[in-house]
Design a protein around this nucleic acid. Structure first.
Lengths: 356, 356
DNA sequence: GGGCAATGCACAATCGTTTGTGCTCTGTCC
DNA sequence: GGACAGAGCACAAACGATTGTGCATTGCCC
């Protein structure tokens, strides 16, 4: 079914058929009679214009690339979902890429998606570098980075308000009296990890103590890393009274490690973490957590993306504020913007006063 | 960067450049010198052939559509992931669609994806009908259905071995002595729900009792449905001693409902369910479950898809067997095939002998 | 009735590839 | 030296849409 078929069967030229179907009838003075006729034929034949041909001509693919480290992780799945739903209204579809937490794959995917002519790229980067993304952006492919931000990244970034969240989370521990707090870090060089650590340390300083480097372990946002880091911390500081996990999987790992060592939570060791778990209330150890508003994160990212494409955002206006006035000098483009989404603190039973 | 630019800069024609880059040099007697020259220029310019133009010409988009009811559900996310990883090697990308559990949206997405010229569609249908999918398939767009299968669907389907799984799960309850078993059904008309119920009933019959319709409630694979259905069942049969949930979310809903009523698990009521939960061992109520091998499900579906596209499956051979000899007569095409993946039974503390 | 505006549509170029065919050389052999 | 084979490449037609422009026809007015 091509437009040509429709045109022939309607007894008009291809151009007329095209205009009739695209609502350009008035503009090009196609008579109502002709318009209806074409429409009817198209309906009867079940005609669907080839987006490929259309893309070629219009130089607009209607495709948005989304690259995440692991789609089966609900956090990223939710983001992918929000983007998918958000851009759909504007006629876009989402091309999905799973980088399996590897920068090399991320790069390959980015190239592959570019070849498919995606009009924009939304990436949750995996590694510590994203020169390839910056290059793409410079080459004219709008890139938006979500969650795993880096410093001086020169790309529009959407994240949670990690500083504030970390501070609040830390204060829960500090007010309960904890001073020897172990930190399960995510990817060290990533901005979320750095910012959260900074938030924690700020809170500690205000309470009159510091958290030394030996109290920080781990280097990935994974359960395994949380488990290993906890073991490491407990070896180094058997007198640890609390654990501050930078993501939920790490907290799960910590719980496993603590259980293995016979520690009770929060009796022997309190635990707080970033990100909630859908059925947290049914867990043996209901964690006190800083909840990221994932769907808002996804929506915001989508809006930033659509804005960069000069399209109307999807209805829910971009309600976060660009925070940092300007990053590292460089060109004063809008792509040094940072967008932040507030988090919610959820107190649960995993924090008690230290008994040691 | 178009091929034309490359060609000009290399001092050759577009056709020569094309062939040089596509490994057709030998076939069309392009000299090695020219070939290398073209390659170099392309590299220098960072040339990437437009997949859009290429698609138009070759009538192959390199796109696979994946439609699931809810990407943020780890079950579907995992499937999407496997497909994404599996087809990537063959140069395909995945176009993602989220039907939000609504047939109307599913239909719209299917049309939209078809317009984008996807070469195949993998769908986890939401509703009770999928005529639109059958139509697409008839129209030449290969469709593969996963998980939410229907009877007489006339499309290749990939599911878990629900009959066997349900039987095993039921036997855990029956051996413990349960006879009054409440069933939290998923979408009633869906084959998974029917098959699982059948498996349960078969096991019951062998044990010499039956499960009447009043012991079955619920009509969706969701937590809410599980919660409501549990309340309903307990109202109808206060003497219920066990609950058989057809999916994990429903089981979670059941747990909530049971807790609300002050029932203990498994003291007052045992619970078994389909699908596991990643950190099930950390739950207050570790459920006995039939675990679907989701990634194998996804891989198998991908392979079936690639086979329908006449491509080599992705390495891991299609190891499940087409079970039903033939469905409902109709054309003896291969698209009446059923593929099944075995499940694993995981016994945990949620089952005890009935005390009432 | 001739001029002019408005109406209604078709022609053809274009987007960036792929690919069948045909043209021009160069060298070899008789 | 002319025929001929083969090597090496260019031409041009697709693929299926969009869109600027130009060609008819009609109606109206003076």
């Amino acid at each position: 079914m091509t437009l040509k078929n429709v045109a022939e069967r309607a007894g008009v030229s291809v151009s007329t058929a095209s205009r009739a179907l695209n609502g350009q009838a008035r503009k090009y003075r196609i008579s109502r009679t002709t318009e209806k006729a074409v429409r009817k034929v198209a309906d009867d034949l079940g005609f669907q214009a080839s987006q490929v041909a259309r893309s070629l001509r219009l130089k607009r693919s209607g495709l948005i690339g989304v690259i995440v480290p692991d789609v089966s992780n609900p956090f990223f799945a939710s983001i992918a979902r929000q983007v998918s739903l958000g851009v759909e209204a504007s006629g876009f579809s989402v091309l999905l890429g799973d980088s399996r937490e590897e920068t090399a794959i991320e790069q390959r995917l980015a190239r592959q998606l570019r070849a498919k002519q995606v009009e924009a790229l939304l990436v949750c980067p995996v590694g510590v570098s994203c020169d390839h993304l910056i290059q793409l952006d410079r080459a004219g492919l709008p890139v938006v980075v979500v969650d795993r931000v880096f410093e001086g990244i020169e790309l529009p970034c959407v994240t949670s308000d990690n500083l504030q969240a970390a501070r609040e989370l830390a204060e829960v521990l500090i007010r309960a009296g904890h001073r020897r707090i172990g930190v399960l870090s995510g990817v060290r060089e990533s901005l979320p990890a750095k910012t959260r650590l900074q938030g924690l340390r700020t809170a500690a300083e205000q309470a009159g103590f510091t958290i030394g480097p030996s109290y920080v372990a781990g280097d990935a946002f994974t359960e395994q890393s949380g488990y290993d880091a906890t073991q490491e911390l407990l070896d180094r500081h058997p007198d640890l009274t609390a654990i501050f996990a930078m993501c939920n999987p790490a907290a799960i790992g910590a719980i496993r490690a603590l259980h293995e060592r016979g520690y009770t939570i929060p009796g022997d060791c309190s635990v707080v973490a970033f990100d909630d778990h859908p059925s947290a209330d049914l867990m043996k150890t209901p964690l006190t957590v800083a909840v990221q508003d994932i769907s808002r994160l996804g929506r915001l990212a989508t809006d930033v993306l659509l804005e960069r494409l000069d399209l109307q955002p999807t209805g829910h206006q971009v309600d976060a504020t660009a925070s940092s006035p300007s990053v590292q000098g460089v060109t004063a483009r809008s792509n040094s913007d940072r967008w932040q989404v507030p988090t919610t603190l959820l107190k649960r039973a995993s924090v008690a006063e230290p008994c040691r």
